[in-house]
Design a protein around this nucleic acid. Structure first.
Lengths: 153, 153
DNA sequence: TTAAAGTCTACAGATATTGTAGACATAAAG
DNA sequence: CTTTATGTCTACAATATCTGTAGACTTTAA
């Protein structure tokens, strides 16, 4: 469902959200740490910057930083920037609604009615998860395991 | 999110679910009514038959029928047959789980943890909507409007 | 002035999706 | 038993989209 582009973005954004605020991270570092093709990641980060999620600094000592606190950056926003608005059917797009050729009765289309519900569910989920959750859950899982190990000693 | 293939499938299945039980419907009719390329629809229907959702009869008087009551055919099943199992990330596939190359710690991957939640939400929604719902909602919408018209006369 | 960064444009390659063609198999009607 | 109406199968063609690469350019700090 999500493109590799968005997957890479989530990985890189996770690293950035983990980093001390104000410390720019290099594209090259992000790319290497997660095995992402560097030039491809470059394009992804530019899109995220244009989308207002990232800030960049050019030149020596430069790199990328989050443009907002991790808790304010939702998955919906990230996915929207990279994969475009999530529309299970073209006629359900909010921004570029496109009617099917043979559709004589848009509002009574069964496929559209049920897919609207799916869209609603997905959007709701994506709106309610932030980068902070992503980082937090990863930490929680690591801690959980660390505790297991402690007990086993 | 869903392919054109699945969209066509939903349209055709809606027609079939609306048809009196036991009456086969011709591919050609389904194709024409919704403006679906005939040969393409053919392939879709074959997949659905192999997936156990449809029955076919060959020869004169033949055509397609639902293989089960509309209320027992979920969207999850239809989407699964045509688009494959829904996995927001390859490592979240139930049937062909594929680890990312550079992933050193699968269970603590933040992207994976949050996407698992999205997968859960989508699956839950798709499991809880059936073809009967699709038909019913379409009917309800048409009735709603018919009533509006009646009152306005 | 130089080196270290990000930026931009264009394209190449891979993969998936959508759509088409035509020969074939099966079943009913007469 | 022949004809006709139907679905089935295999192979391919045409797009479209996604992924990835190249290289010249701009900006900033040391």
């Amino acid at each position: 469902m999500i493109s590799r582009k968005t997957k890479y973005a989530l990985q890189a954004l996770g690293r950035l959200a983990d980093n001390p605020a104000g410390e720019p991270v290099l594209i090259a570092d992000l790319a290497e740490r997660d095995g992402i093709p560097r030039k491809f990641l470059e394009a992804i980060l530019v899109a995220l910057r244009k989308g207002g999620v990232l800030q960049s600094r050019v030149g020596r000592g430069g790199g990328y930083l989050l443009a907002a606190p991790a808790g304010e950056i939702t998955l919906a926003r990230i996915v929207g920037i990279l994969d475009g608005e999530f529309a299970p059917l073209p006629c359900l797009s909010g921004t570029h609604p496109t009617r099917c050729d043979e559709c004589s009765d848009l509002d009574a289309c069964g496929a559209r009615l049920v897919m609207a519900e799916v869209k609603q569910a997905v959007s709701h989920t994506l709106e309610n998860i932030t980068l902070a959750d992503l980082v937090e859950r990863s930490r929680a899982e690591r801690n959980r395991r660390r505790n297991l190990v402690d007990f086993s000693i």
